[in-house]
Design a protein around this nucleic acid. Structure first.
Length: 165
DNA sequence: ATAAAGGCCACCC
DNA sequence: GGGTGGCCTTTAT
């Protein structure tokens, strides 16, 4: 269960990206969710589950603005991360992987000082709440395999190809 | 408290 | 290629 400040004016919306339609949600601190859902309904279900009891107001224009910053200008917007200490350390490590590069689950485990926790790292990466901005797609398997992706390997591959340019 | 399920890896065959 | 055992965190009993 997650918590957002009562002063945070939570909002959400949808927008097209190079990888299909995304859903974003915001608190006053920044983006708190970015997903590539199969349907709008599943995106809303997801928000409901993760931010139980929080009333998001739709604002597609804000999403479009942010999407432009992120996908066109390559800027890093403010984010509002919530998770366990372990998850936060993993998500922070992900943000150090440069665009156009990849890392592995084992290397991330190493980077956070928990070399044995490789599998748990995979689980934490799978729980990444802010796709693309937290570049979970840049992590592949040690043996060169793609690994997994919450919204489909096709999407993961598309993002990686796009980032090479 | 405990069990079960993971976006993994190394090692075997 | 495939199966197994070990590893560690999270979530659901």
């Amino acid at each position: 269960m997650e918590y957002l400040s009562p002063y945070s004016e939570p909002s959400y919306g949808f927008c097209e990206t190079p990888f299909g339609e995304c859903c974003m949600a915001f608190s006053n601190e920044g983006i708190c969710a970015l997903t590539f859902p199969e349907s709008r309904q599943s995106a809303l279900d997801d928000l409901e589950r993760r931010f139980q009891g929080i009333d998001f107001v739709q604002n597609d224009e804000k999403v479009a603005r942010l999407a432009s910053q992120i996908f066109e200008k390559g800027k890093n917007p403010a984010i509002h991360l919530m998770g366990t200490p372990f998850q936060l350390s993993v998500w922070e490590a992900l943000q150090k992987i440069p665009k156009g590069h990849t890392s592995t689950y084992a290397l991330i485990a190493e980077a956070i000082g928990r070399p044995k926790a490789v599998r748990a790292v995979g689980t934490a990466i799978g729980a990444n709440p802010i796709a693309y901005v937290i570049p979970c797609h840049r992590v592949i398997r040690t043996d060169g395999g793609l690994g997994g992706f919450r919204w489909g390997l096709e999407c993961k591959m598309a993002i990686l190809e796009w980032e090479k340019k």
